[in-house]
Amino acid sequence: MNSLLSSTKLRKTLELAVGPLLLIAIWWIAFKGGYVNKDLLPSPFETIGETARRVAAGELNEDFGHTLARVAYAIGIAVTLGVPIGIVLGAKAAVYRSVEFLIDFFRSTPATAMFPLFLLLFGLGDAAKIAVAAFAAWLVIVFNVAYGVLNARRTRILAAQSMGASSLRIFRDVIFFETLPQTFVGLRNAVSIALVVIIVAEMFIGATDGLGHRIIDAQISYELADMYGSILVAGAMGYGLNVLLLVLERRLVHWAGR
């Protein structure tokens, strides 16, 4: 039994290692084979080693923390405003259809194209960066929550109605839980979008800190190992947030698909 568990854990570990190893292998081939100018692409091992040294020395902590805080603020605003609005829109198909064009239009508009508008409204500070990221994340959450409400399983709703449950009880005990899987899908997508928007905003909207500012500053000063390392750290942040939400979803929405 123990050997079976060990082999299963080993198999899962190997499966998880395939992606990072593949990335390093492609990077190494591109570097060693000269497919990319070596002056523009440092060795992956040199980059990873230098990044590990910077992380251990705490050089990335401040920028990492500022970016993470901005993403957290944006997602907090998006969830607080998006979930109740999505529920209201999804509760009546006619209501959702009446605003569907607006949701799809702005959801399809690149968030970066909205930077000038948010700069006019909020100025060059953190408010503009957080607001545009929150807006982009909010649209994704509203869409997914409304979609989850609209597509709640009719059989469970009808079963609750046949047992004499009130509309409030049906929403609280049936519809709300039915929408949670779709809500988490929207939340994971929203986190990814918010992180992308925040990183880009830190690059170009008067930032003095954050991973985006560090990436563009390293590029300008031609510190390529720092630039690529900061990109890897930003990617690790996004991956870590996604894994965290997946773990949370599995604990809270363990009935999904049943």
Results as ranks from 00 to 15, higher is better:
93 A>Y: 09
46 E>T: 14
219 Q>L: 13
187 L>G: 13
137 A>N: 05
119 L>P: 10
120 L>T: 07
121 L>W: 15
197 V>R: 07
71 V>S: 05
136 A>C: 11
252 L>G: 06
133 A>Y: 02
81 L>C: 09
161 Q>V: 09
39 D>Y: 12
53 R>N: 03
157 I>C: 05
4 L>S: 11
77 I>M: 09
26 I>F: 12
196 V>D: 03
255 W>G: 08
251 R>G: 15
66 H>Q: 14
156 R>M: 07
54 R>T: 01
177 F>V: 03
232 L>R: 02
245 L>R: 03
195 L>D: 00
232 L>C: 03
231 I>Q: 14
102 L>Y: 07
133 A>K: 04
95 V>W: 09
38 K>C: 09
63 D>V: 05
141 I>L: 07
114 M>N: 01
83 V>R: 01
211 L>S: 05
191 V>W: 09
238 G>M: 04
182 Q>L: 15
111 A>I: 08
148 G>A: 06
97 R>H: 07
142 V>N: 04
206 G>H: 04
208 T>H: 14
132 V>L: 13
25 A>C: 15
216 I>V: 13
35 Y>G: 12
179 T>D: 00
187 L>I: 12
66 H>I: 15
106 F>N: 01
225 A>T: 13
196 V>P: 13
105 F>K: 13
244 L>C: 11
60 L>I: 01
151 N>I: 08
46 E>D: 12
162 S>M: 13
226 D>W: 10
203 M>Y: 13
239 Y>M: 11
155 T>L: 05
79 V>H: 01
250 R>Q: 12
232 L>S: 05
204 F>N: 12
185 V>Q: 07
223 E>K: 14
73 Y>M: 10
102 L>K: 03
23 L>A: 07
230 S>R: 12
127 A>D: 04
119 L>V: 09
161 Q>M: 14
13 T>L: 08
166 S>E: 02
240 G>R: 07
78 A>M: 05
73 Y>G: 11
238 G>I: 04
245 L>E: 00
79 V>Y: 01
161 Q>W: 10
20 P>Q: 01
84 P>N: 01
192 S>A: 08
250 R>N: 12
201 A>H: 04
94 A>Q: 03
209 D>P: 12
39 D>I: 10
71 V>L: 10
182 Q>F: 13
181 P>H: 11
43 S>H: 05
190 A>K: 06
108 S>T: 08
80 T>F: 15
21 L>N: 00
48 I>C: 12
6 S>C: 09
256 A>S: 15
94 A>G: 06
249 E>H: 15
197 V>Y: 12
237 M>D: 01
75 I>H: 02
123 G>T: 03
24 I>S: 05
229 G>P: 15
217 D>T: 15
151 N>R: 14
130 I>P: 11
74 A>E: 01
144 N>P: 07
107 R>F: 01
34 G>H: 02
210 G>E: 00
206 G>S: 07
99 V>P: 02
112 T>S: 11
33 G>S: 08
12 K>F: 13
219 Q>V: 06
118 F>M: 03
172 R>G: 04
227 M>I: 01
143 F>I: 02
24 I>E: 00
75 I>R: 05
215 I>R: 06
59 E>L: 15
258 R>S: 09
13 T>K: 11
232 L>D: 00
29 I>Q: 06
94 A>N: 03
